[in-house]
């Protein structure tokens, strides 16, 4: 069987398109590259959506944590403490156990005359359940980063905004928020990289694989178990992740340049590739 044929058969296997049964014997390098690559689609799906949604939640949490009202501050504090203080692995387990405990016929929500039945079964599937956990997790980490940046927004900029008569939403939208992002960006880039790494835990963590559709690590360990040889699938997996990490750095670097474009060249903060490790 040619390699191209293998790619056609298994390239989208992780999404359930192509051959139904996984290869069982006579594994080729091509099969390993194709299937592990196919699994990467899930890693990208989880990473992109969790980051995209988490960005807004994180902003809200940062503002909440900086709020003078304890009614808003305390819940934000606790949320961040809960998700930053415990292992993601445990969060996955707990979330799965909690989701399966939801009534299997759905929850009835009485809305006056009509009763709405909320379907809950989909929450136990990785595409939804794990995404929710990753989303909450990255929101907490990024929220803490944004909060730190918010505290370091220079007073002068805020006073200048006041002097221009800006208030409320327009001041936040045009001054506070862009500066906060600019300051937080290097740390946030780190968080993004580590969130993508965390997506490798999804199918190792209590969410079962349906129809043998899993992420890159699911297939890598499938091959390692079947061939008893870890020296091929794990390096392939690592190679894919290096590429993914480099793409994240390129995209976030471009955004960083845009955030800093108003500054004189020598004052622009270059995206440092080594600073704190977040997770």
């Amino acid at each position: 069987m040619s390699c191209w044929q293998t790619v056609q058969d298994y390239g989208l296997r992780s999404l359930g398109i192509g051959e139904r049964l996984l290869p069982k014997a006579d594994f080729t390098l091509c099969q390993q590259f194709t299937l592990i690559g196919s699994g990467m689609l899930w890693n990208i799906y989880f990473g992109v959506l969790a980051l995209g949604l988490g960005f807004f939640m994180a902003t809200a949490l940062a503002l909440g944590k900086a709020s003078p009202s304890p009614l808003i501050r305390k819940p934000s504090d606790w949320f961040i403490f809960l998700f930053r203080g415990s292992p993601l692995f445990i969060q996955f387990f707990l979330a799965y156990e909690a989701f399966v405990l939801l009534p299997r016929n759905g929850i009835d929500i009485p809305l006056g005359i009509v009763t709405l039945t909320a379907e809950t079964r989909w929450l136990t599937k990785a595409w939804a359940g794990a995404l929710i956990v990753l989303f909450l997790n990255t929101s907490a980490y990024a929220g803490e980063i944004f909060y730190g940046a918010l505290q370091s927004v220079p007073k002068g900029e805020l006073e200048a905004a006041d002097a221009y008569g800006m208030t409320g939403w327009s001041k936040f939208r045009r001054i506070t928020w862009p500066t906060m992002l600019r300051l937080a960006w290097p740390a946030y880039t780190n968080e993004a990289i580590f969130l993508f790494h965390a997506t490798a835990l999804v199918f190792f963590s209590g969410f079962p694989a349906w129809r043998q559709q899993g992420d890159a690590l699911y297939y890598a360990s499938y091959f390692a178990d079947k061939t008893f040889n870890p020296f091929i699938p794990y390096p392939i997996f690592a190679g894919y992740f290096v590429l993914l990490t480099l793409s994240v750095i390129v995209v976030f670097g471009a955004i960083n340049r845009r955030l800093n474009r108003h500054l004189a060249t020598e004052r622009r903060s270059r995206l440092r590739l080594r600073p704190q490790i977040i997770r």
Partner: peptide, 11 residues
């Protein structure tokens, strides 16, 4: 199960 056509969920 994988061969019968039913949807297999592995644990």
């Amino acid at each position: 199960v994988a061969e019968t056509g039913a949807t297999l969920v592995e644990f």
